[in-house]
Design a protein around this nucleic acid. Structure first.
Length: 798
RNA sequence: GCGGGGGUGGCGGAAUGGCAGACGCGUCGGUCUCAGAAGCCGAUGCUGCAAGGCAUGAGGGUUCAAGUCCCUCCUCCCGCACCA
């Protein structure tokens, strides 16, 4: 009664592996298709998120195979990272041992899903044969000044006892453990991603097939803002405070200056002033507040007068200099010019502290009155109180004032960016060693290329006590300086794991290549990735870093494209009871248990049918049973095949081929499945022959591959179903003999008529007007207008 | 605040400006059965006895025709954010 999914799935998984069906081969002149899903961290078990991500990818890959493409569909493991160290401490094992065990387990789970990976290309980032090239890339960057060391206040996660990149800090907390991140002064390695900021921003325009959401997130993150840096001279000393603004049109309304508490000149300014003690206390108080508290916008803006004054260069006005908590040292110059009338934050601050205001822009419709204002006017308008710019529209004044100020030497036009250089040092063991040594004589010395890889020592102690285990391995630390041969100390920090994943898609093209990170020929054949699929959580970090690396390789002339991923699909999350599945919520559905109960094909079918790929998917046990029921329904058809299918069914099949082909190409798997269900329903109505049934099976095969392969062979085929061509539809068969035309009166559907396909407009009109059913609706009134949409609809307006 | 994406039956979700709710789940009914399960067949937006009327977050507009296009507003989700 039920098909034996367990037997079938194991059988075909073995068959596919033995016949190397999914081995990607390079055939110059063929159409290639590189399909990539984000490789997983090997935690040991796959979860529903993986199942969804990889099922979407697998269907796309198998569809392209059937369409005759050379498909490369590789898989590997993002194998470095902290969980392995935690596991090593907990289980008294080694991170490597634990990781390899997890990879083995995870691979076996992936295989149970029947994914069409070319396992010959598997890479794991924790192998020296892989991370050697991380080090190679790092050294190439070092050569070009793109990898450098600097001391700065870094994001420190006390829980993970390591530093974090800006991108890894989310809401002030660590992206992994969510603990509050603290500032800490450390000398660390950075990658100069800011050198590529313009290209990273501009080339977003090339990514026509990326989701708008991801593009705008990247744009936000890079954060370009154009304006002018204005030089305000201090009254007395004549020292200059530079101030960045995007609103030069408001400069004549700048009535005071505000410094960030951390501004280097702040303490200098208050020195010897009557309010010195109070001001120092204020600075101290603010510095103790966390960034999260400081940046919540509903908090009252606090500040204190420094006792010093500056001069507004455009009108030589003397204006006070304040210190306040609402100005950030990290952005711009750490000092702002305050225009309370045209900036809401300045407005609130000025009201609070009784500071002067002046209107310099009037809205087009009315005139502002200082006394009547209860918020700042931030819109466009016409300049007033702005010297020779009075009467000019403010957008024009924005440009002209900036140009004039630059000419007069009052400031310079400048672009500010939010993007910061990428901090890659991590105080961890399970990562790629940064290939440098520190020599007392020669300073920072890179390890020569010929000495790569710098291998991770296998015998580091895992005690769970603070600090990286690498700092305790004497043999590793003690090194010979490559320059002078003298005693030197090896770098014990390792690279952030996002380094590893920033180029793995290139390694897949030639996973065993020994001369370079990748073989240029293979890469020029397979790259760029035609379709990349993964979670939205990587919208910034991983995708931005991968784009950066690709541009770097282009500059090295190792690749000839600027963007690594042509099309991007970000699949939605799998929810249970409207919440993300998680251990802490206890709402996890384990894929393995579903495979045992219903088989992988049912799981694949359900997960594709329940929602479009991009949207969230609500897990539903009953929907899963429905999917299983459908497969059984298809299974039963083979027992009752007819000699010859009806013409109507054959026509419907051609329509289905068209619809499913289009839907698969557009990743609309849910509606493709709906069409296949309709065809199945039609077969149940009229019966079918083998020909039609085999076409149905081929169309279903990317989704339920084991199931379809079994039916395919049962019906007498010898080769794999994935060696057969994708069905083509016959245009002629799409044309029906008769069509149903909807008759509307005044836009409302009243009845329908059957007419021959392609009947001319006049004839349809005649038929309709003569129809008895029309009479009650028009009551003898003459038709004002008759709209005929051929083969579809007639609308009579009376 | 800025940027992006949504809001359609009891539920998941369909609809190149042309029959709103495909397909599935659920529910109800029938068939088969000693009985049940599984199959199979049918019904299922709301309202109304019916003819019909009303329905795509709210309100306006364009159009012969609007879930779809335009305007105003409400609301939810995501990202960035005292970013000057």
């Amino acid at each position: 009664m039920f098909y034996d999914f367990k037997k079938i799935e194991e059988k075909w998984q073995r068959y596919w592996e033995k016949s190397s069906l999914f081995k990607a081969n390079l055939h110059p002149g063929h159409k290639k298709y590189y399909l990539l899903e984000m490789f997983p961290y090997p935690s040991g078990k796959i979860h529903m998120g993986h199942v969804r991500n990889y099922t979407i990818g697998d269907v796309a890959a198998r569809f392209k195979i059937l369409e005759g493409f050379d498909v490369m569909h590789p898989m590997g493991f993002d194998a470095f990272g902290q969980p392995a160290e935690n596991a090593a401490i907990k289980n008294k094992t080694k991170p490597g041992t634990w990781t390899h065990k997890c990879i083995k387990e995870m691979k076996s789970e992936l295989k149970k899903m029947g994914f069409s990976y070319d396992w010959d290309r598997e890479v794991s980032t924790c192998e020296a044969s892989y991370y050697k090239w991380n080090q190679w890339i790092f050294l190439k960057m070092f050569e070009r000044g793109l990898a450098y060391r600097k001391v700065s206040a870094v994001n420190w996660c006390p829980e993970c006892a390591t530093t974090l990149a800006n991108e890894e800090v989310i809401d002030g907390g660590c992206w992994r453990c969510h603990k509050k991140v603290e500032p800490k002064d450390l000398e660390q390695w950075y990658l100069k991603i800011t050198e590529y900021k313009d290209r990273l921003l501009e080339d977003l325009a090339l990514l026509k097939h990326w989701p708008q959401r991801v593009l705008s997130m990247q744009e936000n993150w890079i954060g370009k803002s154009e304006g002018i840096e204005i030089r305000f001279k201090l009254k007395g000393s004549g020292a200059v405070i530079p101030v960045f603004t995007t609103r030069p049109d408001t400069i004549f309304g700048a009535t005071y200056i505000v410094l960030a508490c951390e501004h280097p000149i702040a303490k200098e300014l208050i020195g010897g002033k009557p309010q010195e003690k109070e001001a120092l206390e204020f600075i101290d108080k603010v510095s103790k507040k966390s960034n999260v508290v400081r940046s919540s916008s509903d908090v009252k803006k606090e500040g204190i007068f420094t006792g010093s004054y500056a001069v507004n260069p455009v009108n030589n006005e003397t204006i006070p200099v304040w210190i306040a908590d609402y100005v950030l040292m990290e952005y711009g110059t750490g000092a702002i010019m305050a225009v309370p009338t045209h900036d809401q934050r300045d407005f609130l601050f000025a009201k609070e502290h009784n500071l002067p205001m002046r209107i310099v822009i009037n809205p087009l419709a009315c005139s502002l009155e200082l006394k009547a204002m209860n918020e700042a006017y931030e819109g466009e308008g016409v300049q007033v109180n702005s010297g020779k710019f009075d009467g000019m529209p403010s957008p024009e004044a924005k440009k002209q004032i900036a140009a004039w100020m630059e000419k007069e030497g009052m400031g310079c036009i400048k672009t500010n960016w939010r993007l910061r250089d990428w901090l890659i040092s991590r105080q961890r063991y399970w990562g790629t060693p940064i290939p440098v040594v520190y020599c007392n004589k020669c300073g920072v010395v890179p390890v020569p290329f010929k000495d790569l890889p710098v291998e991770l020592p296998k015998d580091a102690p895992f005690t769970g006590e603070g600090g990286s285990p690498l700092t305790k391995v004497k043999k590793f630390i003690e090194a010979k300086c490559p320059k002078c041969g003298g005693k030197s100390r090896r770098e014990t920090d390792t690279m952030a794991t996002f380094f590893d994943s920033s180029w793995y898609f290139l390694r897949f093209c030639s996973p065993k290549f020994k001369e370079a990170p990748f073989d240029k020929n293979e890469v020029s054949y397979w790259m760029p990735v035609d379709q990349y699929i993964g979670g939205i959580e990587h919208a910034i970090l991983h995708l931005l870093y991968s784009r950066f690396f690709t541009k770097f390789f282009k500059d090295l002339k190792l690749v000839d494209f600027s963007e690594p991923f042509q099309c991007l699909l970000t699949q939605g999350m799998v929810l249970k009871d409207k919440e993300v599945m998680s251990k802490s919520k206890g709402n996890i559905v384990d894929p393995d248990s579903i495979i045992k109960k219903y088989g992988a094909d049912t799981l694949r079918l359900f997960i594709l049918f329940a929602a479009p790929p991009e949207t969230e998917l609500e897990w539903d046990d009953r929907g899963l049973e429905g999917a299983h029921k459908f497969l059984n329904r298809v299974w039963r058809i083979q027992e009752n095949l007819k000699e010859k299918a009806d013409t109507a069914l054959v026509r419907f099949m051609h329509k289905t081929i068209k619809k499913v082909s289009e839907d698969f190409s557009a990743f609309k798997f849910n509606t493709a499945i709906a069409s296949l269900m309709e065809l199945t329903n039609a077969i149940y109505q009229s019966g079918t022959d083998k020909e039609v049934f085999l076409k149905l099976i081929i169309m279903l095969s990317p989704i339920a591959p084991h199931f379809c392969e079994e039916l395919w062979h049962t019906l007498g085929n010898k080769e794999s179903i994935f060696k057969s061509p994708w069905p083509v539809y016959d245009h002629k068969m799409l044309i029906e003999e008769t069509v149903t035309v909807v008759i509307q009166v005044n836009g409302k559907v009243r009845f329908k008529i059957e007419v021959p396909f392609g009947i001319n407009q006049e004839n349809v009109k005649e038929l309709v007007l003569a129809d008895e059913r029309l009479k009650p609706w028009i009551q003898g009134k003459p038709a004002k207008n008759i709209v005929v949409i051929p083969n579809k609809l007639v609308n009579i307006v009376v």
